[in-house]
Computed example of a mutant assay.
Amino acid sequence: MATNITWHGNITHEERATLIKKNGITLWLTGLSASGKSTIACALETYLLQQGVQAYRLDGDNIRFGLNKDLGFSEKDRNENIRRISEVAKLFADSCTVALTSFISPYRKDRDAARKLHDDAKLPFIEVFVDAPLEVVEKRDPKGLYKKAREGIIKNFTGISDPYEAPLKPEIHLHTDKQTVEECVQVIVKYLQEKKFI
């Protein structure tokens, strides 16, 4: 734990939001690998930017090329991965950006901690469960990861050798075995509009 540090405040989130006339939120997309999280986040990011809404996507794989390149896939590393992303997403939301996170984030306690971090900062946190049955995502398997996990090549693989704890009460529940990417984006957009986030 760092010592001899002092928080330097300046403009509050409310002041920033008033000045730039934008709201900041975090949309937390969670689900199994190949459920469609990143695909939906990419399409949503494009849509929001086209509408003049400042948005930025934090993607599970992309983050591991930089910020989290020192982390593996043990439970401890996954916890730290999500802790760091929670903090980064909070900063984006505080800057009045729509932060789109697409992470498997398999453990409920980690997602609950991300929510609490936002709640404590009075920033909206919207959990989006990108739901698809295991048999569907295994058939998709665009990266060949499920095949490798079944063969024992990849250890600690969510849905096969590691658990996935589905959200109990997500704000948005998508079913990507039944809905297209465009339909999923519109479900999210409708929710954001109804809640006056955009």
Rank of each mutant, 00 (worst) to 15 (best):
T3K: 12
A89E: 02
E171H: 11
F125L: 07
G9E: 13
W28K: 03
S74K: 09
G159I: 08
A2L: 15
V53P: 03
A34K: 11
E87C: 04
K69R: 14
P133K: 12
V187I: 14
A99M: 03
R115G: 00
N10G: 14
Y146T: 11
T180M: 07
G9R: 15
I160Q: 04
N62W: 06
K90N: 13
N4K: 14
L168W: 05
V137I: 05
I153R: 00
T176M: 03
L91S: 01
Y191C: 03
S161C: 00
R140P: 02
L67M: 15
K169R: 13
K190H: 15
V185D: 14
N23T: 08
G72C: 12
S35K: 06
V98G: 07
N68E: 07
H13V: 06
K148I: 09
E14V: 12
F73A: 10
D131M: 06
I160F: 02
V189N: 05
I160H: 02
T101S: 15
D177C: 01
D94G: 05
L49Y: 10
K69V: 03
A43T: 12
A2C: 05
V187D: 15
V181L: 06
P142Q: 04
V185A: 13
L145I: 07
D141N: 11
V136Q: 04
V187K: 15
P170D: 08
L19I: 10
D110S: 13
I20Q: 14
F125C: 07
V130Y: 11
T46W: 10
T26I: 07
N62I: 08
E182C: 04
V128A: 05
K21N: 14
F65W: 13
E194V: 04
F129K: 00
E45N: 15
C96A: 15
K22Y: 07
I11T: 15
L27P: 01
K169L: 05
G66Q: 11
K190R: 15
K109S: 11
D61F: 09
I85H: 06
Q193W: 05
T180L: 10
K37T: 03
L134M: 15
V130M: 08
K195S: 01
K109W: 05
S33W: 08
I63T: 02
I63R: 01
N23P: 03
E80M: 13
H173I: 02
L27F: 01
M1I: 02
E14T: 09
G159W: 11
A93N: 00
I40K: 09
T176Q: 02
D77T: 08
E182P: 04
I126G: 09
Y191Q: 01
A43Y: 05
N10I: 06
Q193V: 01
A17W: 09
K148D: 12
E45A: 13
G36H: 12
L117R: 14
Y47C: 03
K122H: 13
F92G: 00
W7D: 09
P106F: 12
R84F: 10
L67H: 13
M1T: 10
A55L: 02
S86G: 15
K21P: 00
S161R: 04
F157W: 13
D119W: 02
I172H: 07
K143F: 06
L134V: 14
I126P: 04
D59C: 13
T39L: 11
R140F: 07
T12H: 09
R111C: 00
K147Y: 06
G9Y: 09
E194Q: 15
